[in-house]
Nucleic acid binder design. Structure first.
Length: 902
DNA sequence: AGTCTGCATGTGCTT
DNA sequence: AGCACATGCAGACTC
């Protein structure tokens, strides 16, 4: 390229290696593409992008040439002609820019070539049959893609391109590139001028996809196409269009290697992932700012950037960045890439994993793992310095930006799907969103700019819409309308992402749902409600676990308790319905979880043969197949011929109860804050503290297993999830991680208990003092000390009663006064865990606690009296749990409980 | 105990 | 099959 100088005033690149060979020209040779700014250069004349005027003319900002297309307001079907110029496929008009030796490309949308996706139904057909305009000669005829209706490309032999009178269809030849997947070829990174955004809306359902290398590598046909969207785009056509592609319809086999290369999966986006304008936008008659997937500029190396990293900055944002934003005035903003923030990216570690290809393409080369500091400016103008480095990883590298936490936090970005963003101020529609970080470059100078935006989940990976904080921050700063929102509420269906997203979801739903569930990876972003449902379903499944049939357990005695161990895994048993009758009253179903001696709990099962429901004892476990003949509990109804015990209405009530129970669980479960919801070891430790009675709460719906006396099906404690071979695994002196953790956890709980007790004591003392002072004022000084004591006792009682809702789990009133026996067995441990701390300390020799405990004075007596009072009206387990705001979380494993004391 | 750092590992995607 | 990357994890370090 010699010493070409980029005529882009903001670029000025001169060195030869800053130019790359662009698309081939019919006149011979190639267009030249400025490496830094992506501008096109041909025959000594630099041509910048097209600028769309309101009149419908497109004007080259450099050469002033105009191209007018009558249908420009409604649809675009433009392409960059290989000899230079732009042809409108819809009306077949073209601009003979070549005559002025200028190549004009439209900034964002017409990089090397401009194809088009007709945005209304008239497009394809019109294109197909429209006579070529006078302006169109054999060189102006462009390869067209008529796939709008047929959902596939019209493949026309390129050899016919020279026939000016031939139909466009005839001209569409081997080199025709189908929109979307096949469109966008030649959107060379290097050939993409970004900096002259048009003010019209674009539909980027055709994601430009071929990068520079592909162009260079596949020369035969220079037809390069990409799509332009019109503001009047009819989204309806897009789905079939996309689906057609999605269906894998293959283009003509006669495609040249060039086009085949354009289909390279490596670089071509999946169909329909690009955004479409929403109907609402169209209806509103506004010019949508479709978020355009912009193939990034050519970077170093040969790495192809995955489409999911392609920047999707809107024209408006770009325009603001490049033109109106004073800081970047006369500069070129080159979107480089973007990335959805992962949990680890947005975590406190402060490491942002960079896509390897992006890092190697756009960031300074680093040879040492330590990397180098990288100064990146955010949209607010604040400059951050991150450490750009890499880790060796499987003979490769993993690039990270370190120290991003302050920046991430300053942008209030979070990963995951938990954050809801109101996408429109009007609708206040909250949809799950995630944060993206975008990287752009300011040319000349190569300064890196970091932006952020929020995107709905549906647009992530192939984001569309959402709020681009790179642009949006600017928009906010400069009062721009929020044109980035390519999503709004559908009139009838609530959230309506852009059709692209909807379609994308449809396309990806099945794929995703089969690969994410159960994955260790947290990439699965599941709504909390869904997760809850899943968890409940899982729990229900756990409830159905039964000991393996026809397998005799081996009996193992541990700590005076007999355990059944099975060599075979459990099996699923028959599902039953649980309920309770008010004893001696009419049979009105109540919640199975209802407590009280006045309720008689029972279980109902349906015969697999006759489908009749039979009442069973609450604690029986049924095999997966169960019939009336198996009803050994009711001889009168041990045959299918026996009528049902209750009528249809009552039966309906039973079934309804079961349903209500699940609903209740769904509704109640979210009340448990995630941070307070005990899981794993917490559950185990909590169970150890709570004692075995907790295991009975709400267990009416679950029968005891024979594996562990106090463990129910579905128990997720450590022991229950361990294989049978775990027998004897946790001895008294066991020092395994589990036991150590439990011990540590238990100690922590005890410390917390001590702290709460201390606080409570202080509060009581304060109240007492205040009360005493009041009483002193009101009463005669004759009140003696005994009366004060009585008052104090009353106050303590009131406080104790009032504090029921805050009672510590560790201070189960029922067991406060239980004396610890000399030898600890399983039950005694459970009880011991509820003893006052002092007792516990004495028994377990935790001197550090003991010392502190001794400093608490009368604490023990207070709780002792409280416990005594509580014993007068013992709380039910459920009440107790409710009072402490805890959810029963499972059942302790005796052996572990024992261990936790040691 | 909490945080940081460097690496390892598993999963899913791409080729 | 190989690669990319999200994240887990262990050792080092700091408070």
């Amino acid at each position: 390229m010699g010493s070409k100088i980029c005529m882009n005033s903001s670029c000025g690149a001169a060195t030869s290696n800053e130019w790359k060979k662009g698309w081939p020209l019919r006149s011979g040779g190639f267009a030249h593409l400025c490496y830094p700014c992506g501008s096109a250069y041909e025959d000594g004349v630099y041509c910048d992008t097209f600028h769309l005027e309101e009149s419908g003319w497109r004007e080259c900002r450099i050469c002033g040439n105009h191209l007018h297309c009558g249908c420009i307001a409604s649809n675009y079907l433009l392409e960059l002609l290989d000899y230079g110029g732009v042809g409108c496929i819809s009306c077949a008009k073209s601009s003979r820019l070549h005559s002025v030796k200028r190549i004009q490309t439209h900034g964002d949308e017409i990089p090397e070539g401009v194809g088009a996706v007709p945005m209304n139904n008239a497009g394809p057909s019109a294109v197909e049959g429209k006579a070529v305009s006078d302006h169109v000669d054999e060189r102006t005829l462009a390869p067209l893609c008529k796939s709008m209706e047929a959902n596939e490309c019209n493949l026309l032999p390129q050899s016919q391109r020279g026939d000016a009178n031939a139909s466009l269809g005839q001209h569409r030849g081997e080199e025709v590139i189908c929109p979307t997947e096949k469109v966008g070829a030649g959107f060379s990174n290097a050939t993409q001028p970004y900096v002259r955004p048009a003010n019209f809306a674009k539909l980027d359902n055709a994601r430009p996809a071929l990068d520079f290398r592909d162009i260079q590598d596949s020369l035969p046909q220079p037809y390069l196409s990409m799509s332009l969207g019109g503001s009047s785009a009819n989204p309806n056509f897009l789905l079939p269009f996309s689906s057609g592609l999605a269906d894998g319809k293959e283009p003509s086999k006669t495609w040249s290697s060039f086009q085949q290369g354009q289909q390279s999966r490596r670089i071509l986006p999946k169909p329909s992932k690009n955004g479409l304008t929403t109907s609402s936008e169209l209806n509103k008659g506004i010019i949508p700012q479709a978020r355009i997937t912009r193939p990034p500029v050519e970077g170093r190396g040969k790495n192809h950037l995955l489409p999911r990293y392609w920047p999707r900055i809107t024209d408006q944002e770009l325009q603001k960045l490049s033109g109106e934003y004073p800081r970047f005035l006369k500069s070129t903003i080159v979107p480089l890439f973007e990335k959805v923030l992962s949990a680890s990216d947005a975590g406190r570690i402060g490491r942002l994993v960079l896509p390897k290809a992006c890092a190697e393409a756009y960031f300074p080369p680093i040879s040492q793992s330590e990397g180098l500091p990288l100064r990146i400016q955010d949209v607010n103008g604040k400059e951050w310095t991150f450490q750009f480095r890499f880790w060796p990883n499987n003979n490769s590298r993993m690039y990270v930006l370190e120290g991003v936490t302050p920046c991430i936090q300053s942008m209030q970005l979070r990963a995951g799907d938990t954050e809801l963003v109101s996408l429109t101020p009007i609708n206040s529609l909250d949809v799950p969103s995630m944060s993206l970080v975008t990287f752009s470059r300011i040319d000349p100078g190569g300064k890196l700019v970091m932006g952020f935006r929020k995107a709905a989940n549906s647009e992530t990976q192939t984001p569309k819409g959402g709020k681009d904080l790179l642009g949006n921050a600017l928009s906010e700063h400069f009062g721009l309308p929020d044109g980035n929102i390519s999503r709004s509420r559908d009139e009838n269906h609530g959230v309506r992402a852009n059709e692209n997203s909807v379609h994308q979801l449809a396309m990806n739903a099945e794929k995703k749902k089969t690969r994410n569930i159960g994955s260790k990876s947290k990439r699965l972003l599941m709504h909390s409600v869904d997760a809850l449902e899943l968890r409940l379903t899982w729990e229900e499944a756990q409830d159905l676990l039964r000991p393996p049939p026809s397998v005799r357990p081996s009996i193992v005695t541990i700590e005076d308790h007999e355990f059944e161990e099975y060599d075979e895994p459990p099996v699923f048993g028959k599902r039953t319905i649980f309920g309770a009758w008010p004893s001696g009253s009419c049979k009105i179903m109540v919640r199975a979880s209802a407590k009280g001696s006045e309720l008689e709990q029972e279980q109902w099962a349906q015969c697999d043969d006759c489908s009749k429901w039979r009442r069973l004892p609450v604690d029986v476990l049924l095999p997966s197949k169960w019939t009336c003949s198996d009803n050994v509990w009711d001889s009168s109804r041990c045959a299918c011929s026996a009528p049902e015990e209750i009528g249809p209405k009552e039966l309906e009530n039973i079934l309804k109860v079961g349903t209500d129970l699940k609903k209740t669980k769904v509704q109640e479960s979210p009340k448990v804050a995630p941070e307070t919801e005990p899981t794993g070891l917490d559950a185990l430790a909590s169970a150890a503290v709570l004692g075995d009675k907790m295991g009975d709460v709400g267990e009416s719906s679950v029968g005891a297993t024979t594996k562990h006396p106090r463990h129910r099906p579905g128990c997720t404690c450590i022991v229950c999830i361990q294989p049978p071979s775990g027998k004897g695994k946790h001895k008294a002196n066991c020092t395994c991680n589990v036991c150590l953790t439990v011990k540590r956890r238990f100690k922590t709980l005890m410390l917390r208990k001590k702290k709460r007790q201390s606080e409570r004591e202080a509060e009581i003392s304060e109240r007492d003092n205040k009360k005493q002072m009041d009483e002193t004022e009101l009463k005669d000084t004759r009140n003696d000390h005994s009366e004060n004591e009585g008052s104090r006792s009353r106050i303590e009682g009131e406080v104790a009663e009032a504090s029921t809702g805050e009672i510590d789990l560790n201070c189960h009133p029922i067991r406060e006064d239980v004396q610890l026996e000399g030898g600890l067995n399983m039950m005694s441990f459970v009880e011991a865990t509820s003893l006052p701390v002092e007792n516990y300390i004495k028994q377990n020799g935790i001197e550090s606690l003991k010392t502190e405990q001794q400093q608490q004075g009368s604490l023990g007596s207070h709780f002792q009296s409280k416990a005594n009072r509580e014993n007068e009206r013992p709380l039910s387990d459920e009440e107790f749990l409710a009072s402490v705001g805890w959810e029963r979380v499972g059942h302790k494993e005796p052996s572990l409980e024992r261990n936790s004391l040691q």
